[in-house]
């Protein structure tokens, strides 16, 4: 199997090409705001450099967020174009799950993606053997709320993610005995993790998500929220 893994939900975009177990190309680069459209050019370069022609790919795996709405959409649009164009199956992978996969540990893993002020996108995972099991699925958490929930569990938790200065400060303060934080590349989404998780999902369910995969927005648009609150566009 040759699996392409793509994620553009967070500040650092990721692209990787997996040939069986082997990572033959991996790239992580900061995406300038609104600039994820560079990705097809990066991908073209990766295919040239690895001498893999697009027709040799067998599966497209793509991060569906949560994260930057625009970023996730670009990743999905590229993945859908590739999967449709090459007649390949597509599998969506929660970006937070890929982040959690960066640390194999007996402790709880809490991947975080920056959201609005005072809030994060978060999920809670635990490794069972080689399997990441979701305890809390991806959701939006107030930082205090998240700290209180983890405090109640009373276990050590590894937090992973980038751009989290505000969250780190607060979590370290509220969970002095429990919180530890990822280091370096552990905090960045890895395209190879997206590819591996996508492959596992594909082998389990054999469900092509070309038409069904959509971003994990977790929030309605502002306009819809205002409408629901006031019953008018105001």
């Amino acid at each position: 199997m040759r699996v392409l893994g793509i994620d553009t939900a967070t500040r650092t975009g990721a692209l990787a090409l997996l040939d069986g177990e082997r990572v033959v190309w991996s790239e992580q680069a900061v995406i300038r705001p609104g600039g994820s459209e560079q990705l097809p050019a990066v991908l073209a370069e990766a295919l040239r450099a690895t001498a893999v022609s697009p027709e040799e790919l067998t599966l497209i795996a793509v991060g569906v967020g949560p994260g930057s709405y625009t970023g996730v959409r670009v990743g999905l649009a590229i993945a859908k174009g590739l999967a449709f164009g090459l007649n390949l199956p597509l599998v969506g992978v929660p970006t937070l799950e890929a982040l959690a996969a960066n640390r194999q540990t007996g402790q709880l893993v809490c991947p975080l993606v920056k959201s609005r002020k005072g809030e994060v996108y978060a999920a809670l995972y635990r490794w069972q053997g080689a399997q990441l099991v979701a305890i809390d699925p991806p959701g939006i958490w107030g930082l205090e709320e998240l700290a209180a929930r983890l405090k109640a569990r009373g276990e050590k938790v590894v937090f992973l993610g980038e751009e989290l200065d505000e969250a780190r400060g607060l979590l370290a303060d509220r969970l002095p005995e429990q919180a530890c934080f990822g280091e370096g590349k552990e905090n960045l989404v890895d395209g190879a993790a997206i590819a591996r998780l996508g492959l596992a999902e594909w082998e389990k369910n054999k469900e092509n998500q070309l038409y069904t995969a959509l971003p994990l927005y977790l929030r309605r648009t502002e306009a819809e929220v205002r409408w629901a609150e006031r019953g008018c566009p105001g």
Partner: peptide, 16 residues
């Protein structure tokens, strides 16, 4: 936001 969807899809198709 809309432009990026069509543009990204089109580039991927041309690549494929």
């Amino acid at each position: 936001g809309g432009l990026l969807v069509g543009l990204s899809l089109a580039k991927a198709l041309s690549l494929a």
